[in-house]
């Protein structure tokens, strides 16, 4: 049991290390299957046969996608979605109260903080994944900046740096979120973008169940779902 647990941890870490190196899912599946084949033959533990998962992943030198392809394919759309969601949230309260959308410089900086932190994610992604305190710290900064931005909202027009009609921002934010979610939904059904980990003999091994597919769609529509919840709350408490 102990061996199975430590081997499972080793394989989980190997998958993470190979994912960090942008190795394609089919190559990861092949690597896992060949490692399991040898362990099955020798009865060794994974760490004993292959060394640390990190060193083994590095030693394999498997072909990888261009280093920043995921930035173009995943990060920029996610960032745009976050920006649209933040704008929608700012506009929705003003719109339900039939007020102007008032913005102060401090509020703008606080709202920009999570956007900037995510934009620079490629530079410190390894640290976020390998060190839990970095991940917790970044999450805390994002949450606190969102919280403090609420306190930095101007109470009257004299304090505001910008006074805008909230409706165009509300509609614009909603449109961007829906378009991005539709795009992600179409891409997730498109087989060419399929990067699931697949076994070389029996096909897909992970993320193929109905639950996993539903989870992908919930993730694709996360911002519109949260935005609808915010709209409901704003209408309820206006």
């Amino acid at each position: 049991m102990m061996q199975q647990t430590s081997d499972k941890q080793w394989f989980d870490q190997l998958v993470m290390e190979l994912r960090l190196r942008q190795v394609h899912g089919s190559a990861i599946g092949d690597t896992i299957a060949s490692a399991k084949e040898l362990l099955n033959d020798t009865g060794q533990q994974a760490e004993e046969a292959f060394g640390s998962a990190r060193d083994y992943a590095a030693a394999l030198e498997l072909p990888s996608a261009p280093k920043h392809e995921w930035v173009r394919k995943a990060l920029w759309p996610a960032l745009l979605g976050l920006l649209a969601f933040l704008l929608f949230n700012q506009a929705v309260v003003s719109w339900t109260r039939q007020e102007l959308l008032l913005v102060s410089p401090a509020q703008l900086i606080l709202l920009a903080t999570p956007v900037v932190l995510i934009a620079f994610l490629p530079f410190y992604l390894d640290a976020v994944i390998r060190r839990i305190w970095v991940c917790v710290g970044i999450t805390a900064i994002c949450m606190l900046s969102g919280l403090f931005s609420a306190f930095a909202t101007p109470t009257n027009r004299a304090e505001a740096w910008l006074a805008l009609d909230p409706l165009p921002w509300l509609i614009g934010g909603a449109l961007v979120m829906v378009v991005l979610s539709l795009r992600n939904t179409v891409r997730s059904f498109h087989s060419e973008d399929d990067d699931d980990i697949t076994s070389p003999l029996s096909g897909p091994t992970e993320s193929t169940g109905a639950g996993a597919r539903a989870m992908v769609q919930v993730t694709n529509w996360l911002f519109p779902i949260l935005a609808l919840a915010m709209l409901g709350l704003a209408l309820a408490f206006r």
Partner: peptide
């Protein structure tokens, strides 16, 4: 020979 040496 270890798998970690042979497979890479």
């Amino acid at each position: 020979i270890k798998g970690g040496t042979l497979y890479p």
